[in-house]
Amino acid sequence: MTSSSFKGLRVKDLQVYYDTPEGVVKAVDGISFSLPQGKRLALVGESGSGKSTLSMALMRLTRAPGRIAGGNIFLDEDDILDLDVEEMRLARLSKISLVPQGAMNSLNPVLRIKDQILDGLFDHQVFGSKKITKDEQLSKVNELLSAVELLPSVADMYPHELSGGMKQRVAIAIATSMDPKVIVADEPTSALDVVVQRTVMQTLGRLQEGLEASIVLVGHDMGLVAQFADFVGVMYAGRMVELGPVNSVFEKPLHPYTRLLIRSLPTLENKEDFVGIPGLPPPLLNLPPGCTFCTRFGRENKNTPPWKEISKDHWISECEVCSDIGK
């Protein structure tokens, strides 16, 4: 992929650090990936692997004591890390938008749904400087609501009158209201029932395809990832350990961590003994260089494993010391 004509999201050596009194926590430590326009990437990993930190950094919503310490985030050709604060504020929603984790807490409890949808549109002056009538506003709201399969009557409701799935749909309506190029969805369905989860994800997928937007899905549910994504990025201790097309990763996982992650999942196919992943991820504070996965098994590789493309688009961080685990 040549960088000059690349369409989509391209992240290069991104670093997000948290400065703490005890030292620097490298929550995202040198992550790179390219996501072509219209494709879906899912980021998976255990709690604390840095996937949510990465998704917030993509929106440039990293909060102190966190900071983006280095790297680039290219949207098509422009590095959004070069934008000033006001430009970035305008880029959110119109170019890159967020479907937050737990829509329950992200909607304003004292505003009607229609006002929350219109809020972002007014702010970005979607209607221009001309005064538009209430009817025109309402027709835009209804159009967005019907795109997420909600009834027009929802416009006049407050968040507490909606179910969890409906709230998540409202969040999707807001996120797609300005046809963004990239949608970042941080565990969008983690609090929903399976049937609702499926319908919400199908709605999100349909809208994303219609907009030809790219989507970055953050989640720990490997099942959802297998069903929804085109590419999977597996994160461990702030680094990407494997990245590849979904079929290839699930069929032939190359990194030991991915293998153990997939094996720990219960299936409906056959009953087996459960195998969890032994140990815990390392603390990220003052993490020494070298392979972070080796330490979980009492092994040691002082050299940081190289990031290699093994087969087409299928990358792993290749460490010879722990590569046999889980085989």
Partner: peptide
């Protein structure tokens, strides 16, 4: 049947959501 059909299985080949809700 609907519940089982809606479970996202960790196998990209087993497609999810065949039933129309």
């Amino acid at each position: 049947q609907l519940l089982i059909d809606s479970i996202p299985q960790a196998n990209p080949k087993l497609k999810w959501g065949k039933l129309d809700i």
